[in-house]
């Protein structure tokens, strides 16, 4: 049985930049638990020495030549911007210290 705590669900939500309302959080715990309980059936599968499949294709890495195309017109690049200034996108003020990377 997967036992997920409310705290874990909230941590995962925070990683995904989502907030859960009080009622949603309880519900999400139950739903995730049910899904992970179901997924637990994989535990019984013997995968000793089985390589993982990330891609079904046995391809050699396709590569492109290093030639630069024209840039997208700035007006096209910015056309969908919720907020812009000149040709820059604008977001609420970022404080230096909340560096994420």
């Amino acid at each position: 049985m997967a036992r997920i705590s409310r705290q874990e669900v909230e941590h995962v939500a925070a990683l995904a930049r989502l907030v859960l309302e009080e009622s949603e959080a309880e519900r999400a715990v139950g739903e995730l638990e049910a899904l992970l309980d179901y997924a637990a059936l994989l535990e019984s599968v013997d995968t000793e020495g089985v390589p993982p499949t990330s891609h079904v294709l046995a391809l050699a890495t396709p590569m492109r030549d290093d030639t630069a195309s024209e840039s997208l017109e700035p007006e096209s690049a910015l056309a969908n911007a919720p907020e812009r200034e000149g040709s820059a996108f604008v977001v609420p003020r970022v404080i230096d210290d909340e560096d994420a990377g």
Partner: peptide, 13 residues
């Protein structure tokens, strides 16, 4: 981070 010409207080990307 510095204020832009239009003086908005947001951060430009």
């Amino acid at each position: 981070h510095e204020a832009g010409a239009a003086g908005s207080d947001g951060t430009r990307v």
